[in-house]
Protein backbone atom coordinates (compact mmCIF):
# COMPACT_ATOMS: atom_id res chain seq x y z
CA UNK A 1 0.00 0.00 0.00
CA UNK A 2 1.02 3.52 -0.72
CA UNK A 3 1.28 4.59 2.89
CA UNK A 4 3.07 1.46 3.97
CA UNK A 5 6.33 3.36 4.08
CA UNK A 6 4.87 5.81 6.57
CA UNK A 7 4.61 3.18 9.26
CA UNK A 8 5.41 4.71 12.64
CA UNK A 9 8.39 3.24 14.49
CA UNK A 10 8.73 5.64 17.36
CA UNK A 11 6.62 8.37 18.85
CA UNK A 12 7.96 11.35 20.85
CA UNK A 13 6.56 11.78 24.34
CA UNK A 14 4.58 8.55 24.07
CA UNK A 15 3.91 6.41 27.14
CA UNK A 16 4.57 2.76 26.60
CA UNK A 17 5.54 0.90 23.45
CA UNK A 18 4.53 1.94 19.97
CA UNK A 19 1.54 -0.18 19.11
CA UNK A 20 2.30 -2.66 16.41
CA UNK A 21 6.01 -1.86 16.25
CA UNK A 22 8.28 -4.52 14.74
CA UNK A 23 5.46 -5.94 12.65
CA UNK A 24 5.39 -5.86 8.90
CA UNK A 25 1.99 -4.35 8.27
CA UNK A 26 2.60 -3.56 4.66
CA UNK A 27 1.57 -7.12 3.93
CA UNK A 28 -0.85 -9.53 5.57
CA UNK A 29 -2.18 -7.57 8.48
CA UNK A 30 -4.23 -9.32 11.12
CA UNK A 31 -6.36 -8.53 14.12
CA UNK A 32 -6.24 -10.97 17.01
CA UNK A 33 -9.23 -11.07 19.37
CA UNK A 34 -8.64 -13.00 22.57
CA UNK A 35 -12.17 -13.75 23.76
CA UNK A 36 -10.79 -15.12 27.04
CA UNK A 37 -9.62 -11.71 28.22
CA UNK A 38 -12.43 -9.56 26.82
CA UNK A 39 -14.46 -7.99 29.63
CA UNK A 40 -17.22 -6.68 27.39
CA UNK A 41 -16.53 -3.00 28.14
CA UNK A 42 -17.41 -1.93 24.56
CA UNK A 43 -14.62 0.62 24.32
CA UNK A 44 -13.91 -0.79 20.85
CA UNK A 45 -17.53 -0.24 19.80
CA UNK A 46 -17.33 3.41 20.77
CA UNK A 47 -13.89 3.87 19.20
CA UNK A 48 -15.18 2.40 15.93
CA UNK A 49 -18.19 4.71 15.78
CA UNK A 50 -16.05 7.71 16.72
CA UNK A 51 -13.23 7.11 14.28
CA UNK A 52 -15.59 6.42 11.42
CA UNK A 53 -17.65 9.48 12.25
CA UNK A 54 -21.12 8.04 12.65
CA UNK A 55 -23.49 9.46 15.24
CA UNK A 56 -24.29 6.97 17.97
CA UNK A 57 -27.44 5.14 16.93
CA UNK A 58 -30.37 4.16 19.15
CA UNK A 59 -29.83 0.85 20.90
CA UNK A 60 -32.32 -1.68 22.14
CA UNK A 61 -32.15 -3.34 25.50
CA UNK A 62 -33.01 -7.02 25.50
CA UNK A 63 -31.83 -8.13 28.94
CA UNK A 64 -28.28 -8.92 27.89
CA UNK A 65 -24.99 -7.06 27.90
CA UNK A 66 -25.13 -6.74 24.13
CA UNK A 67 -25.54 -3.20 22.76
CA UNK A 68 -27.96 -4.19 19.99
CA UNK A 69 -29.09 -7.38 18.25
CA UNK A 70 -26.84 -7.06 15.22
CA UNK A 71 -24.15 -4.98 13.56
CA UNK A 72 -25.64 -2.21 11.46
CA UNK A 73 -24.57 -0.16 8.45
CA UNK A 74 -23.23 2.49 10.81
CA UNK A 75 -22.28 0.15 13.67
CA UNK A 76 -19.61 -2.22 12.39
CA UNK A 77 -18.27 -3.62 15.59
CA UNK A 78 -20.40 -5.38 18.19
CA UNK A 79 -19.46 -7.34 21.27
CA UNK A 80 -21.72 -10.36 21.14
CA UNK A 81 -22.74 -11.56 24.56
CA UNK A 82 -23.87 -15.10 25.35
CA UNK A 83 -24.61 -16.65 28.71
CA UNK A 84 -23.55 -20.23 28.23
CA UNK A 85 -24.40 -23.09 30.54
CA UNK A 86 -21.65 -25.70 30.66
CA UNK A 87 -22.28 -29.41 30.99
CA UNK A 88 -21.29 -29.33 34.67
CA UNK A 89 -23.94 -26.73 35.40
CA UNK A 90 -21.58 -23.77 35.63
CA UNK A 91 -22.22 -20.56 33.73
CA UNK A 92 -19.89 -18.76 31.42
CA UNK A 93 -20.21 -15.29 29.92
CA UNK A 94 -18.93 -15.34 26.38
CA UNK A 95 -17.93 -12.04 24.78
CA UNK A 96 -16.98 -12.03 21.14
CA UNK A 97 -16.05 -8.99 19.13
CA UNK A 98 -18.08 -9.39 15.94
CA UNK A 99 -17.03 -7.56 12.76
CA UNK A 100 -15.93 -8.27 9.22
CA UNK A 101 -13.43 -11.15 9.26
CA UNK A 102 -11.51 -9.90 6.20
CA UNK A 103 -11.55 -13.34 4.60
CA UNK A 104 -8.64 -14.38 2.40
CA UNK A 105 -11.31 -15.78 0.03
CA UNK A 106 -14.06 -13.17 0.48
CA UNK A 107 -17.55 -14.33 -0.52
CA UNK A 108 -18.79 -10.73 -0.62
CA UNK A 109 -16.23 -9.85 -3.29
CA UNK A 110 -16.96 -13.01 -5.26
CA UNK A 111 -20.70 -12.27 -5.36
CA UNK A 112 -20.49 -8.54 -6.13
CA UNK A 113 -21.40 -7.63 -9.73
CA UNK A 114 -20.22 -4.00 -9.62
CA UNK A 115 -16.80 -3.09 -10.97
CA UNK A 116 -14.62 -1.90 -8.11
CA UNK A 117 -17.29 -1.90 -5.39
CA UNK A 118 -15.24 -4.29 -3.24
CA UNK A 119 -11.46 -4.47 -3.21
CA UNK A 120 -9.03 -6.68 -1.39
CA UNK A 121 -5.66 -5.15 -0.67
CA UNK A 122 -2.51 -7.19 -0.79
CA UNK A 123 -2.28 -6.81 2.98
CA UNK A 124 -5.55 -8.76 3.30
CA UNK A 125 -7.97 -5.93 4.03
CA UNK A 126 -11.30 -6.29 2.21
CA UNK A 127 -12.76 -2.83 1.65
CA UNK A 128 -16.06 -1.62 0.20
CA UNK A 129 -15.87 1.37 -2.15
CA UNK A 130 -19.32 2.90 -1.75
CA UNK A 131 -18.98 5.15 -4.80
CA UNK A 132 -19.05 2.05 -7.02
CA UNK A 133 -21.67 0.10 -5.05
CA UNK A 134 -25.01 -0.34 -6.82
CA UNK A 135 -26.88 -1.53 -3.74
CA UNK A 136 -27.88 -4.98 -5.01
CA UNK A 137 -26.83 -6.70 -1.77
CA UNK A 138 -25.35 -9.71 -3.54
CA UNK A 139 -22.49 -9.33 -1.02
CA UNK A 140 -24.97 -10.13 1.75
CA UNK A 141 -25.66 -13.37 -0.09
CA UNK A 142 -21.98 -14.18 -0.46
CA UNK A 143 -20.81 -13.45 3.10
CA UNK A 144 -20.79 -16.47 5.43
CA UNK A 145 -20.60 -14.17 8.49
CA UNK A 146 -23.66 -11.96 7.81
CA UNK A 147 -21.55 -8.82 7.84
CA UNK A 148 -22.41 -6.36 5.03
CA UNK A 149 -25.30 -4.10 6.06
CA UNK A 150 -27.53 -2.05 3.76
CA UNK A 151 -28.32 1.62 4.25
CA UNK A 152 -31.89 2.09 3.02
CA UNK A 153 -31.38 5.79 2.50
CA UNK A 154 -28.23 5.82 0.38
CA UNK A 155 -28.76 2.32 -1.07
CA UNK A 156 -25.15 1.44 -0.26
CA UNK A 157 -23.65 -1.33 1.81
CA UNK A 158 -21.18 -0.80 4.66
CA UNK A 159 -18.98 -2.86 6.94
CA UNK A 160 -15.76 -2.73 8.96
CA UNK A 161 -12.85 -1.41 6.87
CA UNK A 162 -10.24 -2.79 9.27
CA UNK A 163 -9.49 0.92 9.51
CA UNK A 164 -7.79 0.79 6.12
CA UNK A 165 -7.30 4.55 6.37
CA UNK A 166 -5.47 4.25 9.70
CA UNK A 167 -3.51 1.18 8.68
CA UNK A 168 -2.44 2.97 5.51
CA UNK A 169 -1.03 5.72 7.71
CA UNK A 170 0.87 3.22 9.85
CA UNK A 171 -1.59 3.27 12.73
CA UNK A 172 -3.36 0.35 14.33
CA UNK A 173 -7.19 0.13 13.95
CA UNK A 174 -9.23 2.30 16.31
CA UNK A 175 -10.69 -0.68 18.20
CA UNK A 176 -7.21 -2.02 18.98
CA UNK A 177 -6.07 1.33 20.26
CA UNK A 178 -9.01 1.62 22.64
CA UNK A 179 -8.92 -1.85 24.20
CA UNK A 180 -8.08 -1.53 27.93
CA UNK A 181 -7.39 -5.21 28.67
CA UNK A 182 -5.05 -5.96 25.82
CA UNK A 183 -7.34 -8.63 24.46
CA UNK A 184 -7.04 -7.02 21.02
CA UNK A 185 -3.78 -7.21 19.11
CA UNK A 186 -2.75 -6.06 15.67
CA UNK A 187 0.19 -7.02 13.52
CA UNK A 188 1.25 -9.35 10.75
CA UNK A 189 -0.71 -12.52 10.24
CA UNK A 190 2.32 -14.65 11.14
CA UNK A 191 2.93 -12.78 14.38
CA UNK A 192 -0.72 -12.83 15.38
CA UNK A 193 -1.06 -16.55 14.65
CA UNK A 194 2.03 -17.27 16.76
CA UNK A 195 0.70 -15.13 19.60
CA UNK A 196 -2.73 -16.79 19.37
CA UNK A 197 -1.25 -20.30 19.38
CA UNK A 198 0.89 -19.48 22.39
CA UNK A 199 -2.14 -18.14 24.27
CA UNK A 200 -4.26 -21.20 23.35
CA UNK A 201 -1.50 -23.53 24.53
CA UNK A 202 -1.24 -21.59 27.76
CA UNK A 203 -5.01 -21.91 28.29
CA UNK A 204 -5.01 -25.64 27.58
CA UNK A 205 -2.06 -26.31 29.86
CA UNK A 206 -2.73 -23.96 32.74
CA UNK A 207 -6.50 -23.57 32.92
CA UNK A 208 -9.56 -25.78 32.71
CA UNK A 209 -10.15 -24.78 29.06
CA UNK A 210 -8.93 -28.02 27.52
CA UNK A 211 -10.48 -27.19 24.16
CA UNK A 212 -8.97 -23.76 23.86
CA UNK A 213 -7.86 -23.01 20.33
CA UNK A 214 -7.47 -20.53 17.50
CA UNK A 215 -10.21 -19.66 15.04
CA UNK A 216 -8.75 -19.04 11.57
CA UNK A 217 -11.25 -20.87 9.34
CA UNK A 218 -9.75 -22.74 6.40
CA UNK A 219 -12.98 -22.79 4.38
CA UNK A 220 -12.49 -19.13 3.48
CA UNK A 221 -8.73 -19.42 3.10
CA UNK A 222 -8.11 -18.11 6.61
CA UNK A 223 -9.17 -14.70 7.89
CA UNK A 224 -7.41 -11.47 8.76
CA UNK A 225 -9.30 -11.34 12.04
CA UNK A 226 -8.61 -14.37 14.21
CA UNK A 227 -9.92 -15.43 17.61
CA UNK A 228 -8.64 -17.27 20.62
CA UNK A 229 -11.62 -19.23 21.97
CA UNK A 230 -11.90 -21.05 25.32
CA UNK A 231 -13.67 -23.79 23.42
CA UNK A 232 -12.76 -23.94 19.76
CA UNK A 233 -14.72 -27.18 19.31
CA UNK A 234 -17.94 -25.19 19.44
CA UNK A 235 -17.55 -21.70 17.93
CA UNK A 236 -21.32 -21.51 17.35
CA UNK A 237 -21.93 -20.72 20.99
CA UNK A 238 -20.04 -17.45 20.59
CA UNK A 239 -22.98 -15.61 19.07
CA UNK A 240 -23.26 -17.92 16.06
CA UNK A 241 -19.65 -17.96 14.84
CA UNK A 242 -19.88 -20.53 12.02
CA UNK A 243 -17.93 -23.73 12.59
CA UNK A 244 -16.79 -24.19 9.02
CA UNK A 245 -17.62 -21.05 7.06
CA UNK A 246 -17.18 -21.07 3.31
CA UNK A 247 -18.38 -19.11 0.34
CA UNK A 248 -21.81 -20.71 -0.22
CA UNK A 249 -21.55 -23.46 -2.82
CA UNK A 250 -24.50 -21.99 -4.74
CA UNK A 251 -22.67 -18.65 -4.95
CA UNK A 252 -19.59 -20.41 -6.34
CA UNK A 253 -21.77 -22.22 -8.88
CA UNK A 254 -23.57 -19.03 -9.88
CA UNK A 255 -20.42 -16.95 -10.20
CA UNK A 256 -18.39 -19.75 -11.80
CA UNK A 257 -19.70 -22.37 -14.23
CA UNK A 258 -23.15 -20.82 -14.69
CA UNK A 259 -21.70 -17.49 -15.84
CA UNK A 260 -19.73 -19.27 -18.54
CA UNK A 261 -22.58 -21.57 -19.49
CA UNK A 262 -24.94 -18.61 -19.85
CA UNK A 263 -22.49 -16.52 -21.85
CA UNK A 264 -21.54 -19.35 -24.19
CA UNK A 265 -25.19 -20.35 -24.78
CA UNK A 266 -26.02 -16.80 -25.83
CA UNK A 267 -23.02 -16.69 -28.17
CA UNK A 268 -23.94 -20.04 -29.72
CA UNK A 269 -27.56 -18.88 -30.05
CA UNK A 270 -26.60 -15.82 -32.06
CA UNK A 271 -24.10 -17.79 -34.14
CA UNK A 272 -26.72 -20.46 -34.75
CA UNK A 273 -29.29 -18.14 -36.27
CA UNK A 274 -26.61 -16.40 -38.33
CA UNK A 275 -25.50 -19.73 -39.80
CA UNK A 276 -29.12 -20.66 -40.42
CA UNK A 277 -29.64 -17.47 -42.39
CA UNK A 278 -26.58 -18.12 -44.53
CA UNK A 279 -27.63 -21.72 -45.14
CA UNK A 280 -31.40 -21.39 -45.71
CA UNK A 281 -32.15 -17.67 -46.11
CA UNK A 282 -35.49 -15.95 -45.70
CA UNK A 283 -38.98 -17.30 -46.35
CA UNK A 284 -39.97 -15.07 -49.25
CA UNK A 285 -43.63 -14.93 -50.14
CA UNK A 286 -43.60 -14.20 -53.83
CA UNK A 287 -47.11 -14.41 -55.15
CA UNK A 288 -48.52 -12.39 -57.95
CA UNK A 289 -52.04 -11.04 -57.77
CA UNK A 290 -53.16 -13.57 -60.40
CA UNK A 291 -51.79 -16.42 -58.27
CA UNK A 292 -53.59 -15.09 -55.25
CA UNK A 293 -56.89 -14.96 -57.09
CA UNK A 294 -56.34 -18.52 -58.30
CA UNK A 295 -55.52 -19.60 -54.78
CA UNK A 296 -58.63 -17.89 -53.48
CA UNK A 297 -60.75 -19.69 -56.08
CA UNK A 298 -59.19 -23.04 -55.18
CA UNK A 299 -60.05 -22.49 -51.57
CA UNK A 300 -63.55 -21.55 -52.47
CA UNK A 301 -63.27 -18.01 -51.21
Amino acid sequence: MAGGTLQIKAISGHAGPVAGANTSRDYDVCKLVDTTTCIGCKACEVACVEWNGYPFRPTSFDNTYQTMPNTEWNYWNLIRFDEHENADGTFQWLMRKDQCMHCEDPGCLKACPADGAIVQYSNGIVDFQQEHCIGCQYCVTGCPFDIPKFNQETKKVFKCTLCSDRVNAGLEPACIKSCPTGCLHFGSKDDMLALAQARATQLREHTSHRNAGVYDPEGVGGTHVIYVLHDSSNPEKYGGLPKNPRVPILVQLWKGPLKWLGGLSMMFGVMGVAIHYLRFGPKEAEMKDADIQKEDRNRGN
Binding site: S265, M266, H276, P282, K283
Partner: peptide, 19 residues
Protein backbone atom coordinates in the same frame (compact mmCIF):
# COMPACT_ATOMS: atom_id res chain seq x y z
CA UNK B 1 -31.50 -16.95 -20.27
CA UNK B 2 -34.39 -19.11 -21.53
CA UNK B 3 -36.24 -15.98 -22.63
CA UNK B 4 -33.06 -14.63 -24.24
CA UNK B 5 -32.75 -17.87 -26.22
CA UNK B 6 -36.37 -17.47 -27.32
CA UNK B 7 -35.78 -13.82 -28.11
CA UNK B 8 -32.77 -14.51 -30.33
CA UNK B 9 -34.94 -16.82 -32.45
CA UNK B 10 -37.93 -14.45 -32.26
CA UNK B 11 -35.98 -11.40 -33.44
CA UNK B 12 -34.16 -13.41 -36.09
CA UNK B 13 -37.46 -14.75 -37.44
CA UNK B 14 -39.17 -11.37 -37.39
CA UNK B 15 -36.38 -9.31 -38.86
CA UNK B 16 -34.54 -11.73 -41.16
CA UNK B 17 -36.38 -14.98 -41.77
CA UNK B 18 -39.90 -13.79 -42.51
CA UNK B 19 -39.80 -10.61 -44.61
Amino acid sequence: LITIGGLIIHVYMGVFMVP
